[in-house]
Amino acid sequence: MNHRQLEKDIEHLEHVISHISAEDRIPLSYWRNRIASVSGAVLVPAQANRVKRLDAALSALEQRRKV
């Protein structure tokens, strides 16, 4: 994945994850897979930190869904 596309994907995920809920029409598993796809890319430290925050935010949504 090239640097520009990776950056766009992370930005998109940051926007979406901050606006979805556990009951959103797109399943959380879809977003989990999208985060996994960017996690597998070569990331600079700042991007890796952003992806970790995305992962934590999605994990919180997943936990709310289980309750």
Rank of each mutant, 00 (worst) to 15 (best):
H15A: 08
P45N: 03
R53G: 09
S29A: 15
A41R: 05
Y30R: 14
A60P: 12
R50F: 01
L13H: 08
Y30D: 12
A36W: 04
H12N: 10
K66E: 11
E11I: 06
E23L: 15
R4W: 09
A48C: 08
H3S: 09
S29E: 15
M1E: 04
A36V: 15
A36Y: 10
I10W: 00
V16M: 05
V67D: 05
Q5N: 02
V51A: 01
R53T: 13
E14M: 11
D55P: 11
D55K: 12
I35V: 15
S21W: 02
L58H: 02
K8F: 11
K52H: 13
D9L: 04
Q47L: 01
G40Y: 02
G40I: 06
L13Y: 04
D9N: 04
I20Q: 05
I35L: 02
E11H: 06
R53E: 10
A48P: 08
I17Y: 01
R53F: 12
I10Y: 01
A60I: 13
R25A: 08
E14D: 12
P45L: 00
K66T: 04
V67T: 05
A46L: 13
I26C: 11
I10F: 00
A36K: 09
N2C: 01
R64P: 10
G40V: 05
S59C: 01
R4N: 10
Q63P: 08
S18E: 14
L54I: 00
V16H: 05
E11N: 11
P27G: 11
L58A: 02
E11W: 02
V51F: 00
L6R: 03
D9W: 01
Q47R: 10
R4E: 08
V38Y: 00
R65P: 04
S39D: 06
S21G: 13
R53P: 06
H3I: 07
A48I: 06
R32P: 00
L61M: 04
L6G: 00
H12V: 07
V16D: 08
G40M: 04
V51T: 09
V38M: 00
V38D: 04
H12K: 10
S21C: 07
R25K: 13
E62T: 11
A57Q: 13
V67Q: 09
S37P: 02
V44N: 15
E23I: 12
I26N: 10
R53Q: 12
E62M: 09
L28N: 06
K8A: 01
K52Y: 14
R25I: 14
Q47M: 08
G40H: 05
Y30V: 10
E14G: 14
K66H: 07
N2M: 09
V51D: 04
L58E: 00
N49I: 11
R25N: 09
I35R: 01
L43N: 10
I20W: 01
E62I: 03
A56L: 05
S39Y: 00
E62C: 04
K8S: 04
H19E: 15
I26W: 10
L61T: 07
Q63C: 04
L28A: 12
A36F: 07
K66V: 05
A56E: 11
Q63T: 11
Q63N: 07
I35E: 01
K66Y: 10
L61A: 06
E7K: 08
A41T: 07
S59A: 11
I35G: 06
R32S: 12
N2G: 05
S21L: 00
E62H: 14
I26Y: 13
R25V: 11
P45A: 02
K52L: 06
